[in-house]
């Protein structure tokens, strides 16, 4: 197993952890963090798989750099929405819907 494949495998594990976190956690701040873990996993898979033969490929690296910046923007937007929700309802959780 090359270093690239190892990175990609760790990325898959991070992604799965993130998905489980988004589905299971109630607190929205934790959910945003889980979403970020998910994103980091996806980036690691992209970069890791691209260099699994030992040759670094600049195209996926540039794409991941773009992705990281967009993820930062999305996280800030999510935090702003959470703060707005907190001001309006006093809770940092989404309201539970009872069977539809």
């Amino acid at each position: 197993m090359s270093a690239g494949l190892l990175f990609a495998s760790v990325g898959v594990i991070l992604f799965a952890l993130g998905v489980a976190g988004v589905l299971l956690l109630g607190h929205l701040l934790r959910r945003i963090l889980a979403f970020n873990v998910m994103g980091s996993g996806a980036f690691l898979v992209l970069v890791g798989l691209a260099q699994r033969n030992g040759i670094a490929d600049p195209v996926p690296q540039a794409m991941v750099l773009t992705g990281i910046v967009v993820a930062v923007a999305a996280t800030a937007l999510a935090l702003a929405l959470v703060r707005r929700l907190y001001v309006l309802t006093g809770k940092i959780e989404l309201p539970q819907d009872d069977e539809g």
Partner: peptide, 15 residues
Amino acid sequence: VLLLALIVILAIGID
């Protein structure tokens, strides 16, 4: 996209 995120944050109006 970054600029858009900032504009949306301004539009939400943070208390």
